[in-house]
Design a binder for these strands. Structure first.
Ligand SMILES: [Mn+2]
Ligand SMILES: [Mn+2]
Ligand SMILES: [Zn+2]
Ligand SMILES: [Zn+2]
Lengths: 133, 133
DNA sequence: CGTTATAGTGATAGCCGTTCTCATTTAGAA
DNA sequence: TTCTAAATGAGAACGGCTATCACTATAACG
């Protein structure tokens, strides 16, 4: 395995991702960085986000619209998310019942190498209040 | 609500979708139609697929690669899928435990209007056998 | 230290799935 | 049959993302 060099770009992506409240897109992150005066390129943001996902430092998921979103999660291992589709506020979830269900269903149908992505999108209490105001 | 006209294009999409074994993309469906001698346009395929999804005649989901896939499902109401990522073979699933978990987690965090998409991708027994052969 | 090999960067072109535009066609009511 | 607007389809446009490649700068090495 080739050594990973430490660049200020990667550190900037890491830091800005950590500051974000919820899941953000690569483009949003890039814009935040540029707004903060950085000259980082968009391709570099994509590359470093992919790298952070690979090492497990960041999580990624598809939005319902098909865009890839990223987050620096507190939980280390496999977990799920409850995400406010309005403000992006995110709660990390563990779901033993879902894991078990996945395994059982896969076995029942003779499937292996089951991949499951279970992320919930909803409207948080704060955003619901703001909407009805 | 404006009346829906019956076109041979819509019927062709419906029929070809019904013939497909598993989930297919709009482009795949378009290609199948053209291969069968149809002169239907790609935009029309997209439009009619969207229409069929709206009326519940077809299901749609995102592949892990982000492409939208469509299927004419036997089950009418809300359900989930177990899909072979190699041959596309699809099993329809009901998942009471997942529904309950979704509701409970949403309530616990004060979220409403929870949207959950739970589709499992795996490798079916037949494809697993073929791979090791 | 300075030198150097090369991983990393970034402007930009390209890719691919999807949607939009708009002139033309056609379903279906009258 | 006539008529109107829903539907179509070729192609342009869009948006997210990846590939390209000349250039930069990290960090190993002397
Ligand atoms: Mn899980
Ligand atoms: Mn469900
Ligand atoms: Zn919110
Ligand atoms: Zn299979």
């Amino acid at each position: 395995m080739q050594p990973k060099r430490n660049t200020w770009q990667r550190e900037a992506v890491r830091a800005t991702l950590a500051e974000a409240h919820g899941f953000v897109s690569a483009q949003q992150l890039h814009q935040s960085l540029r707004d903060g005066g950085s000259t980082i390129g968009l391709a570099t943001v994509y590359r470093n986000l992919a790298g952070l996902v690979e090492t497990g430092e960041a999580d990624s998921l598809q939005s319902p619209e098909g865009e890839n979103l990223f987050r620096s999660c507190a939980t280390q291992g496999h977990h799920h998310h409850l995400i406010c589709r309005s403000c992006g506020d995110t709660r990390e979830l563990s779901a033993t019942v879902v894991e078990e269900w996945t395994q059982r269903v896969g076995a029942e149908h003779g499937f292996s190498e089951i991949e499951h992505v279970v992320d919930l999108f909803g409207l948080c209490a704060r955003c619901r209040a703001a909407r009805s105001a």
